[in-house]
Structure formats: structure tokens, C-alpha cells
Nucleic acid binder design. Structure first.
Lengths: 148, 148
DNA sequence: TCAATACCTACCTGTGGGGTAGGATAACCG
DNA sequence: CGGTTATCCTACCCCACAGGTAGGTATTGA
């Protein structure tokens, strides 16, 4: 499995916010009830979304969460990264500061790991797909921006 | 992480076989030594590859494994599926007999899960990438068949 | 002041990845 | 035929992490 329920639940929270936006902050409790998800667990995910500055929060009575930006300006790449961490196809692959993929098995350029090409391709296609899909695409499933 | 070391190790075994092909079967022991991987673990992976009919095996002295088909006729989609099982981006998504994606959260078409569109796109891009990459592409990293 | 809410830290439990161990079976070689 | 080299098979083990639960603290509106 590629993504865990962290990504699923978190995206459902974001989609819910997108659908009920402009009516003030929405409490996690009401989202949990509407989506049928455990509140205590959603709180963890909401913290990740907040630290990534994808949502704003207001504490106290009538507080809650709201999108920090319009739904069309939030890509799924950002959301998934906030919820799941860096998107890597496999443990030995990570991106360096320039965004180039690095294989931890490559010890001084001796014998490049033959699988690196595959992971690079897979990673690229996933990231491109996530960057091409915005929150708005999911909130209004009728309007598909790009070909699936 | 999307793929585990099962996929990595298994592909390295396949690549090794592709590189040393036409010289008779290769023992797992020699592959394990050359690649620096634990033999006992590779045996599990080799069984998966054999049951998927991606490799042929010969028992006994001077036995070992060999590719069941030319490297250019083996796609990474087959190899990864044999090693990791079905490729699904998330637990709630699976493919039915026709290959269409099904979301286990959809209970009678009530409220379609807003995340399904995203998982469908991601799954499609991964599968397409894996199907476009053959074992030969990895065995000869210089000759890239498709754009990354 | 009180209720509602976000925020924080600690803990728990099951599953699966990533192996190890040990034997049974089969083929070649002298 | 008997030993050696291999695949094949089953059982087990450890631990990190997903997926939560619990319980408290801080903040705000009425």
C-alpha cells in the first residue's frame, strides 16, 4: 500500500473544508461526525495540516479550521507531503537539496543500483500526478482538469 | 514508502539474471554474494518470481534460476506485482475483474469518497510507468526507451 | 464563569516487513 | 551409490509504524 489512511482522512478533512468554506471555521468535531471518522485521530492530522500552513485554526468556542488558501491553489502534493512526509517510492531513495534523487546504496559511484532508474520514473509520475490535482478537483468531482 | 525491499531485492535478482543470461542457470547463492543480500531471504522472493512464471528453476547441483522470457518481454509491472502483490495506492482501493477501480467505502453509491479520483489517477500513473519499463531498460541503463 | 474548542504528550495494540532456522527433495558427479 | 549442491517448504522471530485512545492544558465566545 502506497498511502495510509492518514492521507485519506486528511484529504477528506480538506475536501470537507473546501465544501463548507466561507462560512467561518469548522470544528473538527463536526467534520468527524459528518465523515464518520474518530475525532481524536483527526486532531493529529489537523496538526500536520496546520504546521504545513494548509489550514488556519481558531481556538475556543465557535473555533475550528478553515483553508488557508483557495482550494484551487492547494495541490495534493502539498497535502500528501504534510500528512505522510516526503514522497519516496522506496526507502533507499530520497531527494537532495536540488530535488535530485539520491540512492543510499550508491557508495561512491561504484556500482549504481540498477533499480534506481525505475524508482526515479515512478516517483516522477506520482509527484506529477499529485501536483496536477488540486483540492478543487476533488471537491467538485464533475470538473476534471486533466485526463486521468 | 511505496515499495518495500521485496521489490528492490527481487528486481536486483532479475537484473542480475538478465545480465548473466545464456550461460545456464545461476544459483541464488552466487547472486546473494554478488549483490550482498541475505540468501535465505532471497529464497522467499525467488519463490514468488517462480510462481509468477517470471523465472525458471532447476534443482540440484549446477541448478539455479534463469529468466523464463527475454528481458525485453518482462515488464516491471509483472515483477512488482509478483513481489509485492497488487498495486493499490491505498487500502480502500482495489481493482475488480474488469480492472476498474473499486472503493470499499462506497456503500451503495450513497456518497462517493472524494479521494477516489486522486487514487485512481495515482494508480494509473504508477501502473503505466511500470508497464512502460522492461527488465532490459534496467539491465542496460544507458538505453532509455521512454522519457522519464 | 462555563462551555466549546484547539493543542499537546503519552500510551497502547495489531500487522506486516524483513528477516532466520532447519529440514525435505531433487539433480549432478565421481 | 553416496556426497555435494542446489531448490523448495514451513515455521518462527523481532520491531517499527499505522491507527488509534486517553487525558490533560490553553484559549476564546457568550
Amino acid at each position: 500500500m502506497i498511502f495510509s489512511t492518514k492521507a485519506e482522512y486528511g484529504i477528506r478533512v480538506m475536501t470537507h473544508l473546501a465544501a463548507t468554506d466561507s462560512t467561518g471555521p469548522v470544528s473538527l468535531g463536526s467534520i468527524a461526525e459528518a465523515e464518520g471518522l474518530p475525532l481524536a485521530y483527526l486532531e493529529h492530522l489537523a496538526q500536520r495540516l496546520r504546521r504545513a500552513e494548509l489550514v488556519d485554526s481558531r481556538r475556543g468556542a465557535h473555533g475550528g479550521y478553515s483553508l488557508s488558501r483557495p482550494a484551487e491553489a492547494i495541490t495534493m502534493a502539498e497535502v500528501v507531503r504534510a500528512l505522510e512526509g516526503d514522497i519516496a517510492p522506496i526507502e533507499c531513495i530520497s531527494a537532495d537539496a536540488d530535488g535530485d534523487l539520491v540512492c543510499s546504496r550508491e557508495t561512491g559511484g561504484a556500482a549504481p543500483c540498477p533499480t534506481k532508474l525505475l524508482w526515479a520514473r515512478v516517483q516522477g509520475s506520482i509527484v506529477r500526478t499529485l501536483e496536477d490535482t488540486t483540492l478543487q478537483d476533488l471537491a467538485r468531482p464533475a470538473g476534471r482538469r486533466v485526463a486521468a
